[in-house]
């Protein structure tokens, strides 16, 4: 993975986040949540600083980041597309919807389009099973989506 150099202001921000949790190693998950909220994702450099500040090994931080699906080491797209793959959505055709998004945007799940606009991810049940299958883009929720609707949905964001 390409190394990025963090601006000093961002490093300071991270140090501050760690400090707000008393630099406690047991607060690691809370620190990561805050860090991801701030940076959008958790690149290696961010993890290194967190490890240093909390006085734990980088391997430990990396182990936790990769264990939990909520944490991401790659930046998400400007419009993050999430397809619900909960059982209720699955039996109502979510897989076909996912295939269509992947095909139209030519990116696999977990990655971002080259222009940085869209990223695709699967999530497990947003609890809107009455609207299955469900797709969320950012905060917006689309219900009862079929493969045929995909092109129109993408178009909304391509302007």
């Amino acid at each position: 993975m390409a190394k990025i150099k963090l601006a000093k202001s961002k490093v300071d921000k991270l140090v501050e986040i760690c400090k707000s949790f008393d630099n406690e190693g047991s607060e690691l998950i809370n620190v990561l949540h805050k860090a991801q909220e701030t940076f959008g994702y958790l690149p290696a450099e961010v993890q290194e600083i967190i490890a240093r500040e909390l006085n734990v090994s980088v391997a430990h931080v990396y182990g936790v980041v990769t264990f939990y699906s909520f944490f991401s080491m790659v930046p998400k797209g400007e419009f993050p597309i999430s397809i619900c793959m909960g059982t209720a959505c699955y039996v109502r055709g979510a897989e076909k919807v996912l295939e269509e998004f992947k095909r139209q945007l030519s990116v696999p799940v977990g990655e971002t389009t080259e222009d940085g606009k869209f990223s695709i991810s699967c999530l497990r049940c947003v609890g809107a099973c009455g609207l299955a299958p469900v797709v969320t883009i950012g905060e917006r929720v689309y219900g009862r989506v079929s493969a045929g609707d995909v092109a129109d949905i993408i178009k909304e964001y391509q302007k």
Binding site: N30, S69, F71
Partner: peptide
Amino acid sequence: MRYGAGAF
């Protein structure tokens, strides 16, 4: 409160 991070 403590927050989970997506692990069944």
